[in-house]
């Protein structure tokens, strides 16, 4: 019974195994990026960037149809253009980066929806917005695994400056010229993982697997290494349960995965020992003398 419910779908069907591998790759690459987005108080930046890649993917689709390469390159160009333009406007004008990012991503989103809805079909729109995790081919899996590997290696290399850029940016600037490099490399990783994620989960859901596990992990552990490990575990568990729910109850898989991650976030919010609601409600032990 348990075997049939939990293992057989993956044992019997190749598309389920592919979906699982794709989701694990996204979990490994995107969740550490999500942890740093959260710690830098940039969670909503992830959401904005997810919308910003839409017109690039749409233009890629217009040029080459449902081509993995064209849509990926288009998404990357659109995402990086929005990131760099909003950074430039923030430095060159009186507008702050959050406002300039909001302006550019909204323009970008509107252009993307316009292109897809006037030149494509509803099926294409659904593909871009919600992904096709149950239809990942070899090329998509290779792309997702490559992005995950590149992300993990880059984060390992940039770990120390990235931590400093988050916690004590003035100190980083006083000891090193790596501040700007770190910031833009990190933004590139955000865009890269969102572009990878949208093939499986769609532009709107990709940011969910980035942020929800990170936010859930914050309630369980208090060191950066453990945060990343717990966030990855939450993302992988969400992927497995989400795919199984999708299989057994004929639900769309992307939203199912994100809703499971959302449920785990809610559970962590209630029961997590590090600042969760229950932990805060319990009486504190007496102060040591």
């Amino acid at each position: 019974m348990i075997w049939e419910a939990l293992v057989q779908p993956f044992a019997d069907f190749g598309f389920m195994r592919r979906a699982l591998l794709g989701c694990i790759a996204i979990s490994v690459g995107a969740t550490p990026v999500g942890v740093f987005l959260m710690l830098r108080r940039m969670s909503l930046t992830g959401d904005a960037m997810a919308h910003a890649i839409l017109p690039g993917a749409a233009v890629g689709y217009l040029i080459a149809g449902l081509s993995l390469g064209a849509m990926t390159i288009g998404g990357l160009i659109a995402g990086m253009a929005v990131a760099l333009l909003s950074g430039f406007v923030a430095r060159a004008t009186a507008l702050r980066e959050d406002a300039s990012l909001a302006a550019f991503y909204l323009i970008s989103l509107a252009v993307g929806v316009l292109i897809v809805s006037t030149r494509g079909s509803n099926v294409d729109l659904m593909h871009v917005l919600f992904g096709t995790v149950l239809a990942l081919n070899d090329a998509a899996l290779i792309l997702l695994c490559s992005i995950a590997s590149l992300t993990v290696l880059t984060l390992a290399g940039l770990f120390r400056p990235l931590v400093l850029e988050c916690a004590d940016p003035m100190f980083l600037r006083s000891v090193s010229g790596l501040s700007a490099v770190t910031h833009f490399t990190f933004l590139t990783l955000v865009v890269l993982n969102l572009v990878g994620g949208f093939h499986a989960l769609g532009t709107l859901m990709a940011v969910g697997i980035m942020i929800l596990p990170a936010a859930a992990a914050r309630f369980w552990v208090a060191s950066i290494g453990r945060l990343i490990a717990v966030a990855m575990a939450v993302a992988i568990v969400s992927s497995v349960i989400g795919l199984l729910l999708s299989y057994h109850f004929s639900l769309p898989s992307g939203p199912a995965i994100i809703l499971v991650a959302g449920f785990l976030y809610g559970l962590s919010l209630l029961l997590g020992p590090v600042g969760g609601l229950a932990a805060r409600a319990l009486p504190r032990p007496p102060l040591e003398t």
Partner: peptide, 12 residues
């Protein structure tokens, strides 16, 4: 730096 420049909520 001034203490206000440091994000003390960061898990360090």
């Amino acid at each position: 730096p001034q203490q206000s420049d440091i994000d003390r909520s960061f898990p360090l």
